[in-house]
């Protein structure tokens, strides 16, 4: 499977990728995007099986990235990995079609629990 990791922090993208490995999701192809606009473009060209996206990014936020995908008819499974985990943001994410919201700081166990239904 192919996973797209969108975050404007290169360091955080590396940590998300490391945590995927620690959670037992090794062997998947990883594609990186540096903001929501880059992520939207790469969903079209790379056709990932799952998107893991930050929320607060320049150019296009994560929630706008998700809304634009769904607005264009793209139903790629989508989850947030973000520093903001309030109930309000979880509701916004869910209403826009996100499968889950993982709040930073996170653990491999949280990744395993959220991603197993998608990645098996």
């Amino acid at each position: 499977m192919k996973i797209l990791v969108a975050d404007d922090s290169r360091v955080m993208r590396q940590i998300v990728i490391r945590t995927l490995r620690q959670a037992g999701f090794s062997g998947h192809d990883i594609v990186e995007a540096e903001d929501g606009a880059d992520g939207f473009d790469k969903v079209q060209t790379e056709k990932p099986d799952l998107v893991l996206s930050d929320w607060n990014m320049p150019n296009k936020t994560g929630i706008d990235f998700l809304r634009d995908l769904r607005g264009s008819g793209n139903q790629t499974p989508f989850g947030f990995v973000t520093s903001e985990g309030s109930e309000e943001m979880r509701t916004l994410a869910s209403d826009a079609g996100a499968l889950f919201l993982i709040a930073k700081p996170f653990t491999a166990e949280v990744f395993e629990e959220a991603l197993t239904p998608v990645l098996g």
Binding site: S9, N56, T82, S83, E84, G85, S86, A103, K104, P105
Partner: peptide, 10 residues
């Protein structure tokens, strides 16, 4: 600081 800010905001 982003993660701290997110926690504080919440």
């Amino acid at each position: 600081l982003n993660v701290v800010g997110g926690s504080v905001k919440g």
